[in-house]
């Protein structure tokens, strides 16, 4: 009961802060919009995807990938706020409270995933502009999937943030973990046109399965489905769920070790 209350409290704090910082919401939306409008439009004008059927644009291909990107960045940023909390002292208030540490870690993971899910869901509003039709059931599936992906990535972020004393290491993590995770996820280009070594790396990237799951949902009835999707929905779900379990366990253990 006490642990549940703690989870709720930590979650609520993140949600209140998200709601209050509207500039951050807009700021975080800027990046995916830039990718879609500039990179997406630019690339779809120059390249034709060799496997793609007539009339299928690169923008459509990229759209679920960019939603995946938003989830990735928002999740990791939310988790990294632990380091800010440490810097500004609030972490101590939480660590001295008579509640189990794991409940704090889980509350944080749920808070971060809720924010990442909300942030990414805003992008669903763009679907008609891109030329994708989303039914209510599809939207529901998308939101659920986004939450699951966000949960695994926030947990990964917590694992990292628990070991970080200051924000100094953040650039390293960005360059050597977050950006590679994004580039290799198949968000920007399909796995079936890259050299084998890269395809192997892409298969190792857990986010690949998240992005693939989103494509599975978005292109369920599309003729381009065969070419766009790498794995079955079942495989994608299993990998993302497994990733969630592994990372939340690692995150909780790492959080337990904070002094």
């Amino acid at each position: 009961m006490r642990a549940l209350k703690a989870i709720y409290t930590i979650w609520l704090r993140d949600v209140i802060r998200f709601y209050r910082e509207k500039t951050r919401i807009v700021g975080m939306l800027g990046q995916p919009l830039l990718y879609l409008l500039i990179v997406g439009t630019g690339l779809s004008a120059s390249f034709r995807m060799s496997f793609a059927p007539q009339g299928f644009s690169y923008l459509e291909f990229m759209y679920p990938g960019i939603i995946g990107m938003t989830v990735l960045f928002t999740s990791v940023f939310s988790a990294i706020s632990i380091v800010w909390d440490r810097e500004f002292g609030f972490l101590k208030e939480v660590l001295v409270a008579p509640v189990p540490r794991w409940s704090v870690a889980i509350g944080k993971a749920l808070g971060g995933s809720t924010i990442a899910m909300l942030q990414a869901s805003i992008l669903l509003l763009l679907a008609p502009v891109i030329g994708i039709k989303l039914g209510p059931l599809m939207i529901l599936k998308m939101v659920g999937m986004l939450f699951l992906i966000a949960f695994s990535l926030t947990s990964l972020g917590i694992t990292i943030a628990s070991r970080m004393e200051t924000m100094e290491g953040f650039q390293m993590i960005m360059n050597f973990l977050i950006m590679p995770l994004f580039f290799l996820s198949g968000a920007m280009f399909p796995m079936n046109s890259v050299p084998p070594w890269m395809a192997t790396l892409m298969k190792l990237d857990p986010l690949t399965y998240g992005v693939d799951a989103l494509r599975n949902i978005v292109f369920a009835g599309s003729p381009a489905r065969e070419f766009l999707i790498q794995f079955s929905m079942g495989t994608d779900l299993a990998v993302v769920a497994a990733m969630s379990v592994v990372f939340i366990t690692a995150g909780t253990l790492a959080f337990n070790k904070i002094e």
Partner: peptide
């Protein structure tokens, strides 16, 4: 200080009470 400066005074107290 171990307050959350981006929350109000009441919210800081409320979260403490919950924990």
């Amino acid at each position: 200080t171990t307050l959350d400066e981006r929350l109000t005074a009441s919210e800081n107290l409320f979260f403490h009470g919950m924990l």
